[in-house]
Computed example of a mutant assay.
Amino acid sequence: MDVDAYVVARTAEWARLEELAARRRLSGPESDELVRLYQRAATSLSVVQSASPDPALVGRLSSLVARARSAVTGAHTPAWRDLARFFAVVFPTAVWRARWWVAGAAGASAAVAVAAGAWVAADPTVAATITPPEGVRQFRREFVDYYSEHPHGAFAFSVWTNNAWVAAQCLLTGISLLFPLWVLLQNALNVGVSGGLLAREGGLGTFFSYILPHGMLELTSIFVAAGAGLRLGWAWVAPGRRTRATALGVEGRAMAAVALGLVPVFAVAGTIEGFVTPSGLWSPVKLAIGALALGGFLAYVGVLGSRGARAGETGDLLADEGAAELPWAG
């Protein structure tokens, strides 16, 4: 047999097989084509092994047949590819799809915080019910000392785990719709009252220089967790054309993706709070670091999340393993 002529005749279909085997998703006709070309390549490998002593050709075909067999039998992709897909597609898409809930949580929290802060700052009677007049100055010292009274590393780790726990509560209890709202209310009141008390002593600049460097990313992450939790709860109330079980399944797995994805985000916020906020850096520099962290996160979600949504992704953590939806009409 003329091996060279045989190779030339089969080169195009081997290249096509290599292309199909490298794809993550295939249509029905493409899957049939993959199986057919795999069978032909396996036959070609047997022919070449018996007719050609060329080890390079045999090795190339053996590798191609092995990759095609993995694609045909549904072998799992390497873990690093799943991890890369999670951070490039799944997590940003899950956050992007919950963006209006996140924006609502952020807007409502800001309104409550500003209203509470303005009330405390303007009404001495209200401020006195929180702390006596002589205690406001002490509160200012405690507010500043809070960020430096513990070793930076230990403080950053403590902040990280605490924020992750708060976010987990918002996500896990989101189906109730009430608990995430309660967490947001408490958080907004704490921030607003602290700002109002400091404003009474002319310390509003101190408040912002200590709360914003880490707070821009930290509070946004809390809003993301609350928004995703509220979206899950709303999926139970108004599932749309999906059954409630299907809606809760999809949104619940997207919520799990948000929970996992926020872990490194909170780590970044905790690092800023532990090392940047209490540092001796010029306040505008600290604020610029916080703004850069927030801007990077928003750009990451905006670009990759919107791209994933346009491609039909849902942020479902187990999209490839989820149950198929029943067809509907209307």
Rank of each mutant, 00 (worst) to 15 (best):
Q169S: 09
N162W: 02
G290Y: 05
A108Y: 03
V65S: 05
V114T: 12
A88R: 14
A309T: 14
G308K: 04
L83F: 12
S63P: 00
A66H: 12
P278H: 06
E251N: 08
V72T: 11
P151A: 12
A156L: 11
A167Y: 00
D320E: 15
G296L: 09
E273S: 06
S279H: 10
W328E: 13
F208M: 12
G302C: 08
N187M: 02
V8L: 14
A9K: 11
A5H: 07
L248Q: 08
A15S: 15
A309L: 03
F266N: 13
L45P: 09
S283N: 11
A110Q: 04
V7K: 02
G249K: 03
V224N: 04
V95E: 09
G205C: 01
P327G: 04
D320P: 00
T173A: 12
L230D: 06
L292P: 02
S148I: 03
E134C: 02
G196D: 08
R97E: 13
A291I: 10
L217K: 06
T206K: 01
M216S: 08
F223I: 00
A5W: 00
I175C: 02
L57E: 07
W101D: 11
L204M: 13
D32F: 05
L83I: 15
L17W: 07
A154W: 10
A309D: 14
N187K: 04
T11G: 01
L230M: 15
V126M: 09
M1N: 08
R97Y: 01
E313A: 14
L232R: 12
P213I: 06
W14S: 05
S52F: 04
A75K: 11
E33P: 02
V144I: 15
W100N: 08
D316E: 12
T77L: 15
L294C: 06
P53K: 08
S306L: 10
